[in-house]
């Protein structure tokens, strides 16, 4: 099973849709809301996001070592071999 980790914002509808996608496909995932996180977690997420593509756009979805920035069900499905 591939590991799915997501950075999200509590205010972002596309993050909600991304979570819904994984739930509907019975794929377990971990997520952290960047806007609700403590300072240290925030700093780590920020570094991760900026290192990937110099932007702070959410959702930021990691499927194993691959990253998808944005709500993109087709890409999620491809990376998960669905």
């Amino acid at each position: 099973m591939k590991k799915v980790v997501m950075y999200t914002l509590s205010t972002c509808p596309w993050c909600m849709r991304a979570k819904k996608f994984f739930r509907e496909h019975d794929i377990p995932f971990e997520y952290t809301d960047y806007d609700k996180a403590d300072d240290r977690t925030k700093e780590a997420i920020k570094e991760d996001c900026l290192a990937h593509g110099s932007e702070m756009s959410f959702p930021f979805v990691k499927i194993d070592d691959k990253v998808v920035v944005g709500y993109n069900p087709e890409k999620y499905a491809t990376l998960l071999d669905l």
Binding site: P13, W14, E55, S57, V69, G70
Partner: peptide
């Protein structure tokens, strides 16, 4: 725009527009 609040004036079906990351 990134969150989809705004779309180009000629767009009637916003659901067809994908988020493309800055990197892509």
């Amino acid at each position: 725009c990134w969150c989809g609040l705004y779309v180009h004036k000629d767009v009637d079906d916003p659901d067809s527009l994908m988020q493309i990351s800055l990197k892509e």
